Amino acid sequence: MIFAVAEAKGPDVGVSELARTLGMSKTVVHRVVRTLAAADFFSFDERTRRYRLGPGAVSVGLAAMAQMEVPRIAQPYLERLVASTRETATLSVRYGMQRMYLTQVLSPQEIHMSVQLGRLYPLYAGASSKAILAALDDEEIRDYLAKQPLAPLTPITIQDPERLREELEVIRSRGYAVSLGERQQGAASVAAPVYEATGRVYGSISVCGPVGRLGVGKVEEYGALVREAAAEVSRQLGHRSGDRNVRA
């Protein structure tokens, strides 16, 4: 229905036209468009009795465009991270109370990390996930920890909610998260949150590689690099460092 209105020849469309286009009865079409109009997906002109796309549809479209645009914006920063660290760099996006990898630039080294794009991961384990979780507000974190079992993904996954809360405070303080085998044995990562123009967390940028190559000194060095890269991508998305981050 929304696509039919969006693809109409004119700026607006009537119920009869929609019914003919979709091969549906006018009664059904009228009921559906009224529901969508109530949700702001359509705007209804009382004078002409015709519908056009509303602010809700526009917001969804802009959000979808942003999702497609962010990997392009992040690409040069991921490439710079790989050039600086010689490890794999990734971009993750928050998906509700989970997250997924959107894109990656692989390490040039023979032994390197490669992530699975599009797969959902929990927010309590791994640097990319914890960077996002730490960027949420306190109430949302409390709600998440109250509902989400901290099931062990590896022997060193944090399973104590209080310990995880303490870890999130450290992440907020230094600006990046660290994981040394929490989500995947033998894998290490350092990640920082990426923010939208609204101040809400979009996702995270990470550098990841074998645990043996990411020692304490490297963690601090790479942490500073991913924090800077994430801040640059956030600025490209319209976020300003002086803005109050909306952790939601």
Rank of each mutant, 00 (worst) to 15 (best):
L36H: 09
K130S: 10
A127L: 11
E232N: 05
E220V: 14
L62C: 02
S107K: 11
H112M: 06
R86S: 03
G215M: 08
R94I: 00
F42W: 11
L91Q: 02
G242N: 09
V246Y: 11
G96C: 07
T154L: 08
Q67G: 06
S179G: 09
P152Y: 14
R163M: 05
L78S: 03
I2A: 04
F41Q: 05
I141K: 09
V70P: 02
M113Q: 05
A230P: 00
L136E: 04
Y124G: 04
P149F: 14
M68T: 08
K147F: 10
L53V: 08
R247F: 09
V28S: 10
A146C: 11
L180W: 15
V15M: 01
Q236Y: 13
K130M: 12
Q104R: 00
Y121N: 01
V216L: 02
R31S: 01
D143K: 12
S114N: 05
Q75P: 06
S59W: 06
R183V: 06
M100P: 00
E220L: 14
A229P: 02
E196L: 08
Y77G: 01
Y77W: 12
P155T: 12
Q236A: 14
Q184M: 08
L81D: 01
V13P: 00
G215T: 00
E228C: 04
T21E: 10
R240T: 06
L53C: 07
Q104E: 03
V5T: 02
T90Y: 12
G238A: 15
L164F: 14
G199M: 04
A19P: 00
Y77L: 13
R227Q: 09
L225N: 09
T85P: 01
I111M: 04
D40A: 06
A131N: 14
E196F: 15
A187H: 04
R235L: 07
G199W: 09
G181I: 13
V207H: 03
P152H: 14
P71C: 07
R235W: 12
T35S: 11
R94H: 11
A6P: 02
L36E: 06
V233S: 11
V190E: 06
P108V: 15
L133W: 15
A135T: 05
T88N: 08
D243N: 10
V33Y: 13
V219K: 08
Y124W: 13
